[in-house]
Design a protein around this nucleic acid. Structure first.
Length: 405
DNA sequence: TCTGGGGTCCTAGGACCC
DNA sequence: TCTGGGGTCCTAGGACCC
């Protein structure tokens, strides 16, 4: 049976949500109506554009531009900082509204959802539901969405991207040649800035060009990725809407430092702060990690990473930090000027699964209790209020207020 | 005052085993 | 004194997404 899929995409999500919130707080201006962007903080060297208004887009400003570039393109641009707590709030409100239509919802990102609407079999019914959702989101939540209507996720996603904002587009199989094939190949989902130039060299300029290519040739040149791009260009995608809550496969935390750092001791302090946040989240998920990964970026934008296995899966801050420190020492050689430092854990397993399979493990019981007490305090009073005693807090030391929950 | 941070998945190549 | 080959596991790096 053919599936009925909707893809819901919030228009300029961060900017729209900030606009709605500001209006609620009594602001006289709607930042969606003026040249405005949501951007990072240049003084913390994270000055890039996260979202833009239509007027900002008309100036040629693009997402991920530096704020410096944005200001050059549009000198009177208004810049606002991001607030992820607010974004999560609006994301949840949208989710709750969508739950009234189906519980088969996949949260694809903070501002995108797939809905499996196969129970609404008639095309007319489905389109009417899309219209109803669009209208209700606008009226009840105060922002607009684009909705893609199709028989699989890929086509629904492509459709929701057509013209914006506040639009509903269908992309049924028979519409692929007219609606999707004329588009530049760079518009196809999963084709990024590395692959597109290679396709251009092969005289593949549009999605239609790609669709008509020999699948085998693409496989030879791009491997699995080649097969996937050929299938996507032909509108083929059999993946399901994953509506069940899934646990993450890795948990990471990284930061671009306010200034380059050379001293190993300082890096260690930051590494501890980063690790504490990672293990806090790990324990919240009730997961244990087997692999630790540390990432460095130098002032020349050279990235390196090292990973290592732990003997036993753990969520202990101390154990993971010790491993991370060892990895950092392996990679670090003087005089290195470090711009970014990150830690990530991989190979995650459910805590219960492991404990059953182990003999009664008394190791680090004390440490586990300490982690638990700290977690409870953090849950009660907020993440940044509680810091480990004994070490100076790297976060405060460097004013890294963005090591956030 | 250029260039974020959170993820997922894939691949090439090395180590090691039979 | 010329060095196969299949399989698995692991690591570093890269590509892509929002």
């Amino acid at each position: 049976m053919e599936k009925q899929i909707l893809h819901i995409d919030v228009n300029n999500a961060f900017l729209s949500w900030s606009a709605v919130e500001m209006l609620k707080q009594g602001s006289q201006i709607d930042i969606r109506e003026i040249p405005a962007i949501i951007g990072g903080d240049e003084t913390k060297r994270s000055g890039i554009v996260l979202a833009k208004s239509m007027k900002a887009k008309e100036c040629g400003i693009r997402t991920a531009d530096t704020i410096y570039q944005a200001r050059k393109k549009c000198p009177n641009i208004k810049i606002f900082s991001s607030n992820f707590q607010i974004y999560r709030k609006y994301s949840n409100e949208l989710y709750k509204l969508l739950l009234q239509y189906t519980d088969k919802i996949e949260k694809f990102s903070i501002d995108e959802c797939f809905l499996d609407m196969t129970e609404y079999l008639m095309k007319d019914t489905l389109l009417n539901k899309a219209k109803e959702i669009s209208k209700r989101v606008k009226e009840e939540l105060g922002f607009t969405v684009n909705i893609g209507v199709a028989h699989n996720k890929l086509l629904a996603k492509m459709a929701s991207d057509f013209t914006k904002p506040d639009r509903i587009h269908t992309l049924y199989k028979e519409e692929i040649p007219t609606k999707m094939w004329p588009l530049p190949v760079s518009e196809l989902f999963m084709l990024g800035k590395r692959t597109v130039p290679k396709l251009y060299n092969m005289q593949i300029k549009t999605i239609g060009d790609l669709a008509k290519m020999d699948k085998k040739l693409l496989e030879k040149k791009f491997g699995k990725h080649g097969i996937m791009m050929w299938e996507y260009a032909n509108g083929i995608d059999n993946s399901e809407v994953h509506y069940k809550e899934e646990k993450p496969k890795c948990v990471g935390n990284s930061i671009t430092l306010p200034e380059n750092i050379v001293e190993l001791e300082k890096l260690e302090e930051i590494l501890l702060a980063l690790t504490e946040q990672v293990t806090f989240r790990l324990r919240k998920y009730n997961l244990l990690a087997k692999t630790v990964n540390v990432q460095l970026r130098t002032k020349y934008f050279e990235d390196t990473s090292h990973q290592g296995k732990l003997t036993i899966s753990t969520s202990s801050t101390k154990e993971i930090y010790e491993k991370a420190k060892t990895l950092l020492h392996q990679m670090y050689h003087k005089p290195m000027e470090i711009r970014l430092l990150g830690v990530r854990v991989d190979n995650l397993v459910e805590k219960e699964e492991i404990q059953l399979s182990l003999f009664n493990d008394k190791r680090n019981e004390k440490q586990e209790k300490l982690d638990k007490v700290v977690d409870e305090l953090k849950n009660k009073y907020g993440y940044n209020k509680i810091t480990r005693a004994g070490k100076m807090n790297a976060g405060n030391l460097l004013k890294l207020k963005d090591i956030k929950k």
